[in-house]
Design a protein around this nucleic acid. Structure first.
Lengths: 149, 149
DNA sequence: CTTTTCCCCATTGACACCCATGATTTTCCA
DNA sequence: TGGAAAATCATGGGTGTCAATGGGGAAAAG
């Protein structure tokens, strides 16, 4: 299986268009449908990205919960209501909806950050700061945890 | 499989007509029959929407599972009694019955909210408030649930 | 005959698609 | 091994198409 790996800095044009990194586009789920799913991160000022298969997986999981349960209800509204299926055009670009841009505090330059089965989109400066503090925390708290699993 | 995803704000005209979002209309169950099923939510001031196939699925589930509680059974019958199959016209619009409008406290602007295999129709302001509180709860109670990659 | 429901046409604004360019990388042959 | 040709990629810009919406009128129901 292929994965979302590495970090790429691409530019957003005045129309809100930005190239999805070519290596990300090669991901099976994106090639198959020509689409990528984006949604606002719950915990960080960034955008989360994945393919449709991942969404379908979630949908099925939620569907198997007891009908009318509270947990199902909450999960559904949060995830699916916020998820944007975006078409990737012939030149490999998507148009970033404005509210997503605002949530992630994006300006012209965007960082596409690989995370394995998903990826994130950050403002490059914010991402740098976030990485730095993560690194420091990891060193302080639990160096042994890194690479477990 | 396709899913109901994202949130769209559309306008209801004086005749009670409103466009079903194009991406919702592409859903197989809606294309096939040209119809959408709506019924009043039991738990929220909103309208629930799905396709005929999902109704059939619900019906079968109720039949085949003796484990269904008395409450679930009566809920089910309420759903079927309340369900309205509405025709989608040539331009992709439906006419919202007045009692549904009242239940969901709708005015001119409506929010079509994707929930995977179903969707909801909300007043945009009510929906915004609801989402906000759900988001806060999710962060407090179960951050692990939140789409960890 | 009156009222409701449905169908048709017109408008507008967003976005999906088209082509072009330059920069970088890869290929491949001298 | 060097270097030219070809391919790939990120980016800029123009334009046609389609979704959302408004309005009119025919068919159907009561």
């Amino acid at each position: 299986m292929t994965l979302f790996l590495s970090t790429f800095i691409n530019q957003m044009d005045p129309k809100g268009r930005v190239s999805v990194p070519a290596s990300f586009r090669e991901q099976v789920g994106l090639v198959k449908t020509g689409r990528v799913i984006l949604y606002r991160s719950f915990t960080h000022p960034c955008i989360e990205g994945c393919d449709i298969d991942r969404m379908a997986l979630l949908s099925n999981a939620a569907d198997q919960m007891p009908s009318f349960s509270k947990e199902q209800d909450s999960l559904m509204s949060l995830v699916f209501a916020d998820a944007r299926p975006l078409n990737i055009d012939g030149t490999g670009r998507i148009v970033l909806p404005e509210d997503l841009q605002i949530h992630a505090r994006l300006s012209k330059k965007l960082a596409f950050v690989g995370r394995g089965k998903t990826f994130q989109i950050w403002d490059p400066d914010l991402f740098e700061k976030n990485q730095k503090s993560l690194r420091e925390d990891a060193l302080k708290k639990a160096p042994s945890v890194v690479l477990s699993s």
